[in-house]
């Protein structure tokens, strides 16, 4: 059993990581992430980048849906706005990546502010449908505004450059993604220790009560949409530098649904939850793919079952977590941690 868990100053009490054990583990994680490319092959690096990009999006959606309670089925649309804005900034305006990616974030942010406007009048299920409409409209614009987005052929983007270094391999992109992910996760974790973040949570728990205690509902909801879309936009921008091309079919409704699945599986309203959820939801299909490849040795048509099985497992994951573990993986992990912290005493 862990004992002696007390703080002597308010600063220690408010710290993001409060115990020495936590700090050690975070340090270990940091070293492991930095050293990962030394041991990982091409494929693992690709997966790591993919998880990193999606993780930023999932963090953003968790701010909007998990913490502020506004359901969005249009998150992939915002990511697309960010991706296209980044691509255009990088090609037509010739901006370097460290300006192009924030430009993508800002563009998505503006789009989020517009889509967020109806959230004052409508909520819950209706808002979900409104954002669904936004997703459909975004996709249509990506495909049809050929002068700007390049239509279905999309836009090609040159790799990111630093002085003396071209970030053209998955290895080099990995560190770019890692830095951006850490920055955004850190910002998200801190957001909920500020007045704005607390206001988000108050709006989720009961919006009318929040308004009565002095939270400006309209401003808070719009702000939540903007922050969340910024994350999506940055994810889109990174995605552009990761894949070197943007096409409309990179941002379908199914991606929006995948983001929602990530935060549900991980745990709504939890930063760690978004991390666990993204890793889990992204890697399970990959695990299935390897399984199907192994099975192909035994039964040649095993690969035909891979796609349907992926759909089934994806759906079963959502339904299973909602029915059996609504607080997601974060809750499972916490339960495990509590068990070890209290061991050998039962709770």
């Amino acid at each position: 059993m862990r004992i002696g868990d007390f703080q002597e100053s308010y600063a220690a009490d408010e710290a993001l990581f409060r115990t020495a054990t936590q700090r050690v583990w975070v340090g270990v994680l940091g070293v492991a992430l930095a050293a990962f490319p030394l041991v990982a092959g091409e494929y693992l690096l690709y997966l790591a980048n993919l998880v990193g990009v999606l993780l930023i999006g999932a963090l953003g959606l968790n701010i909007l849906t998990g913490y502020t309670g506004q359901i969005s089925l249009g998150h992939a649309g915002f990511m697309g706005v960010g991706a296209y804005a980044t691509a255009i900034a990088a090609t037509r305006l010739g901006l370097p990546f460290w300006l192009a990616i924030p430009a993508g974030g800002a563009a998505a942010c503006a789009a989020g502010a517009v889509v967020g406007v109806p959230s004052l009048r409508i909520k819950g299920l209706y808002l979900a449908i409104a954002t669904l409409a936004a997703q459909v409209i975004f996709e249509w614009v990506f495909t049809n505004w050929t002068g700007v987005t390049g239509g279905i052929r999309g836009l090609n983007v040159p790799p990111a450059r630093l002085p003396g270094l071209v970030l053209d391999t998955d290895l080099r992109t990995y560190y770019l993604v890692l830095v951006v992910v850490v920055l955004h996760a850190y910002a998200a974790a801190n957001l909920f220790r500020t007045r704005v973040g607390r206001a988000f949570v108050a709006v989720r728990d009961r919006d009318l009560s929040a308004e009565l205690i002095g939270v400006n509902l309209f401003r808070t909801k719009i702000l939540a949409f903007m922050v969340s879309s910024w994350y999506a936009g940055v994810a889109g921008g990174l995605f552009v530098y990761f894949t070197k091309v943007v096409t409309p079919e990179s941002f379908p409704l199914t991606l929006s649904i995948q983001f929602l699945a990530m935060i549900i599986v991980g745990g709504l309203g939890s930063i760690q939850g978004a991390i666990y959820g993204t890793v889990f939801v992204t890697l399970v299909p990959e695990g299935l793919r390897s399984l199907a490849q192994v099975a192909q040795e035994l039964a040649p048509d095993a690969m035909t079952f891979f796609h349907p099985m992926r759909d089934i497992v994806f759906g079963a994951m959502i339904v299973g977590f909602l029915v059996f573990e609504p607080h997601g993986l974060a809750e499972l992990v916490n339960r495990g941690r509590r068990f070890f912290a209290l061991w050998p005493f039962p709770k």
Partner: peptide, 15 residues
Amino acid sequence: AISVIMVTIGLSSIF
């Protein structure tokens, strides 16, 4: 609301 929406989305994927 989000649970109820997502569970039907999950079902649609299973189907």
